[in-house]
Design a protein around this nucleic acid. Sequence first.
DNA 1: ACCTGAACACCGTTCAAGT
DNA 2: ACCTGAACACCGTTCAAGT
Lengths: 243, 243
Amino acid sequence: MDRERTEGVPAPPWRKSRKPAPPKRQLSQELIVETGLRILDAEGLDALSMRRVAQELDTGPASLYAHVANKEELLELVYDQVLGEIQLPGRDPARWKEQLRAYAVEVHRVLARHTDVARAALANIPTGENSIRIGEFVFGLLIEAGMAPRQASMAMDRLSLYVVGDAYEGSVHYARMRASGLSDQGEYFEHFAGQIAAYYRELPPDRFPMVSKFIDELIADDGEDRFLYGLELLLDGIEARMP
Amino acid sequence: MDRERTEGVPAPPWRKSRKPAPPKRQLSQELIVETGLRILDAEGLDALSMRRVAQELDTGPASLYAHVANKEELLELVYDQVLGEIQLPGRDPARWKEQLRAYAVEVHRVLARHTDVARAALANIPTGENSIRIGEFVFGLLIEAGMAPRQASMAMDRLSLYVVGDAYEGSVHYARMRASGLSDQGEYFEHFAGQIAAYYRELPPDRFPMVSKFIDELIADDGEDRFLYGLELLLDGIEARMP
DNA sequence: ACCTGAACACCGTTCAAGT
DNA sequence: ACCTGAACACCGTTCAAGT
C-alpha cells in the first residue's frame, strides 16, 4: 500500500524527483524479452547475452533463470515478439500469388529491421504464437487456392526457409557493414561489390572462364534484387503446381 | 643438425621407441584446418573453438594466430575443405536441369555429412577455391543452357542459398537429435513429428482452423522430401525463364 | 618467423543461501 | 516463489617475452 495515500493527501508532484533510484521494476518474462529485443536492435545478436540482459536490468544473470529456461528460449521469445509486428491481410485465394509475394516481402522487411533475429530463427524451430498465426495464413491461402494439403505444407515450409535464410544472409552483410564503419546500405553494396570484382579479376581465366568473363554481370544485382528474383522463382514453381 | 648423423653412425631403429613423446608435428594452416574439421565432424560446430583446436595440437590458443587470422578465417577454411569433397561432372547444357538437381543433392549430402558446417557457411560469405570451382560449374551451366548472365548469376546465388539454408536447418535437427540421445534419423523424425502434432492438437481450432484440420498432412513429409520439393520449385522457376 | 604463458574481457548455467 | 553472490567451466584475442 502507498503510504501517502492512506494520509488522504496527494503526493506533491516534486516527490517523484526525490526518488532518483529507478523503481527497480520487478523482473518478468515480458520485461526480459523486451530488454533482449532492445539490445538486439541496438547492437546485434552477438551482444545479446544473458549477462548483458541482466546487467541492463540491474541484476545478476542468475536472476533471469526464474523466468526463462535458458538462452535458447529467450531467443525464441524475442523472435516471436518480432514476428508480432507482421501485419497480415484477410485471405483472398483468387489473389494468392500476390498475397504470398506481399507476405514474403513484409516478413523480410520486418526481419531486416531487427538486425539479425533471423539467425536466431534459423537456429531454433519457432513454435511461438505469431509463428502459428503466420503459418495459418500462408497454409490456409494455399489450401483455399486449391493446393493439396501435403503440397501446401511443403510450399509454406520452403517459402519460409527462403525468406528467413535470405534475411539471415542479409544480416551477415549488415554486421559487416557496421564493422567496416559504413552506415549507408548503397555505399556498402558498392564497396562490397568492388571487393568481389577485384577478387574475381585475379582468378586464372583458363580455370574459371565463365566467372572471369562475366564479372560485371555477377556483381550487378544487389541483395534486394536477388531476394525478389528468388521469390519469383518459388512462386512460379508453386503456380505450376496449382490445379 | 641431428647429432647421431654427425657421428657417421645410423641411429638404431629402436631409438624411435625411446622418444615416446609424439613428434610434435610442426604447426601449419593445413594441420589446423584438418584438426578443426575433425572436431567439427566428431562433436559439432559448438565444440570447434580456437582453444579446443590448440588443445588437440598440444599447444596454447595463441599459437594458432601465426597461421590463421581469427576464428572466422578458420571456419571459412574448414568450409572450403568440405566443399573440396564435392564431385562435379563435365557440363552438359542440354541436361542442365538434371545436372543442377544432381549438384544440389550432392552439395546437400556433403554438408549433411559434416554435422553443421552449413552454419559456418551461411555466416561467412565463402570465397575459397572450391567455392569458386562450384560457382564456375553452376554459372557456366546456366549460361551455356541459354540464360542471360545476370539472371544466371541470381539463379546460381538463390540455388546456393537454398541448399545451404536447408542444410543448416537440417543440422539444427541433427544437433537436437544428438541432444535427445537418439541416433537414428528415422526414429528422431517420428519423435519430432509426434511432438509437433501434439502441440498443434492443443491449438484452439477456431483461431487456427487450417492448421488444426490438416495436422497429419503437416507432419507427413520429412526433411529429405521437403528439400527435394523446394529444389523442384526452384528448378521449375528457372526452367520457365530459359529461352 | 614462429611459438609461448599469462592476461583481459567476456560467455551460459548451477547451486546453496537468502527473503 | 523469487532473487542473489559466487563459482564452474568455458570463450576469442592480445601482447610481451622467448627461440
